[in-house]
């Protein structure tokens, strides 16, 4: 009885324990790791992943997946930068429509939401597996990004816009504030609202949820829309930090995001997991990336190590599910 209790406690705190051990190991191996500037740098980088992984967690909780977040992030960043920098020209009407920062950000977030809603709609309306629907969206969004940017970065977005990615507020980087607010809202939604309960219910047993009157399709579309919007927020941070919208931004971000979700203990089969677990997973991925760079590990080996960490996390998740 006690052994079973201890084991379940251990599984509950597995990502925190892993994070602690990782930090301990890195602080021994590198004297730069525990410096304040490095830790803020890690948190600034991790903020983007936390943002998109929060959306990914909601999707994975419904037993879905979204492979398009990286491309949607790039598209939204490019649209924001393009509108902010160049506006829209209507030569026939001799009209120029300029966008303020607020306007550009809103346009990006609306684009992300629309892309997410479209993925959700195709998944629910045509019964397309989420993997396939979002894989298609990945390609569509990347192609649209290339079309919008013509393959060139859009840079020089102004100091005010840079504040979202590089600024500080009360001694804490602005991206950390943004991701903290998003996490707080997501924790509230998943734990205290009807939508949160529906998300867990759908992931736990979709048929039973449908029979009990939950509008499964509607909830799924909402969840994919939120994930798209959060990918757009990630796009704001990345574009702002680089002062440039890169057409190839966000490549493989979906993998880091899924890794954060899985490492954080959210079950890929849905119905089990938490936003805070994902935050821990994202920090583990960020710390791991940072540590491997500080230890001067070759980028090729970094990929191998990250892949193995994800694999181990999934194996632990599976063994945990079996025991339950």
């Amino acid at each position: 009885m006690n052994i079973a209790l201890d084991r379940s406690k251990l599984l509950r705190f597995q990502s925190l324990i892993a994070l602690f051990l990782l930090c301990l190991g890195l602080s021994i191996l590198s004297d730069k790791f525990l410096s304040v500037s490095n830790l803020w740098n890690v948190m600034r980088q991790v903020s983007v992943n936390i943002c998109i992984s929060t959306g990914m967690t909601l999707i994975v909780l419904t037993a879905g997946i979204d492979l398009s977040v990286g491309s949607v992030l790039a598209l939204c960043g490019a649209i924001m930068a393009g509108l902010l920098k160049n506006g829209i020209e209507l030569p026939d009407s001799n009209l120029y429509i300029g966008f303020t920062i607020l306007g550009a950000i809103l346009a990006g977030v609306i684009t992300g939401s629309a892309m997410g809603a479209f993925s959700g709609w195709t998944i629910t309306k045509f019964n397309v597996p989420p993997f396939v629907a979002t894989l298609a969206m990945l390609t569509v969004a990347r192609g649209l990004t290339m079309l919008w940017t013509q393959g060139f970065p859009i840079s020089g977005l102004g100091d005010t816009f840079l504040y979202f990615g590089t600024g500080w507020l009360l001694g804490i980087p602005v991206p950390v504030w943004i991701s903290a607010i998003i996490v707080a809202i997501a924790v509230f939604v998943t734990n205290k609202t009807r939508l949160g309960r529906y998300i867990y219910a759908i992931g736990g047993n979709e048929s039973a949820s449908r029979l009990s009157g939950i509008q499964v399709n509607k909830v799924k579309i909402i969840v994919y829309t939120i994930a798209g919007a959060l990918a757009a927020v990630g796009g704001i941070m990345v574009t702002s930090r680089l002062d440039s919208a890169q057409p190839n931004a966000g490549i493989s971000y979906e993998l880091d995001s899924i890794a954060a979700v899985v490492i954080g203990g959210t079950s890929l089969s849905g119905g089990r997991g938490s936003i805070l677990g994902t935050v821990q997973g994202a920090i583990i991925i960020g710390v791991l990336n940072n540590g491997l760079v500080l230890l001067n590990v070759s980028p090729f080996w970094q990929q191998v190590v990250k892949g193995l960490v994800i694999l181990i996390a999934v194996i632990i998740d599976k063994s945990g599910s079996k025991n339950e």
């Binding site: 429509i97 303020t100 306007g103």
Partner: peptide, 15 residues
Amino acid sequence: FLAYNSVYFKKLDEV
């Protein structure tokens, strides 16, 4: 309110 604070219009020749 959001729309008013999001966009502005100018003549294209002037820009």
